[in-house]
């Protein structure tokens, strides 16, 4: 069985300044930027593989490149070095409400966002009740309301319900478990556990040790764009905490 996520020598370079805007001509005509650079590597020399059904938690301080790595796995950012191969569809729990438009009704939004993630209208009809039930009675009552009139919690609940019904084999999670009220959070946790039990691969970013311990078996530790730890999640959390304490 080949790994579902395979990152090899992954690297991505960012600009500190906005100087790049001047260098457009070079990028287009020479294929590279010749202007003096002030850049840094947000991630470099990252290699790892994730097998099917694994639950991986990504740990690291602010600015260590966690979200960037997640985005490259999701395919919404392109590495400058190396590459990442993802075998199978991805359900990205990143920027959950990205596909929703304030001025349309919640119902229209749900169908449109579902369409963006590749669900046909018939498939959406089938899943509609499941999604809205999961989002809760408050959301159900407001399905014909303009989406912008939803509270931010309700907006995220609907979006979470939609993405988690996508049924893709790989689930990427970026700190979204911290949404909603206590009751809804527990529902989210249950659903995540069901997805894991169903053999899905989970790749999550979190600062919450409780979440990491609960879902992840394996930990990856990023420090300033380098992969400095890969092992059982408990050890990785300890390593991270030790580093954080030492830095204090």
């Amino acid at each position: 069985m080949r790994p579902v996520i395979e990152a090899k020598d992954l690297g991505i370079e960012f600009y500190r300044s906005r100087r790049r805007k001047m260098s457009l001509r070079e990028i287009v005509f020479k294929g590279k930027n010749l202007a003096p650079k002030d850049t840094f590597w947000a991630l470099r020399n990252i290699s790892f593989t994730v097998e099917q059904g694994e639950a991986v938690g990504l740990v690291g301080g602010n600015g260590s490149g966690k979200s960037t790595l997640l985005k490259m796995i999701a395919g919404v950012m392109i590495p400058d070095e190396g590459g990442v191969k993802v075998r199978g569809g991805v359900a990205p729990l990143i920027e959950l409400t990205g596909g929703f438009l304030g001025e349309l009704t919640a119902r229209d939004n749900l169908y449109l966002a579902g369409g963006l993630h590749g669900l046909s209208k018939a498939q959406m009809d089938e899943r509609y009740d499941e999604i809205v039930d999961f989002a809760g009675p408050q959301v159900r009552a407001g399905m014909d309301m303009a989406y912008r009139h939803f509270s931010s919690g309700m907006q995220v609940r609907l979006a979470f319900a939609l993405i988690t019904t996508l049924d893709e084999p790989i689930v990427l999670v970026d700190e979204v478990l911290a949404v909603g009220d206590r009751a809804f959070r527990e529902k989210c946790y249950l659903r995540m556990e069901n997805m894991l039990a169903g053999g899905k691969t989970l790749f999550m970013v979190s600062h919450s040790e409780a979440d990491l311990r609960r879902f992840a078996k394996r930990g990856l530790y990023l420090q300033q764009g380098r992969l400095v730890g890969d092992g059982p999640v408990e050890e990785i959390i300890e390593q991270y905490n030790a580093d954080a304490d030492a830095a204090r």
Binding site: K71, A74, G75, V76, V90, P92, I94, E95, L96, T97, G98, G99, L116, H117
Partner: peptide
């Protein structure tokens, strides 16, 4: 930009 950032199309 939000959609471009969140969907791999």
């Amino acid at each position: 930009s939000r959609l471009v950032r969140s969907t791999n199309l």
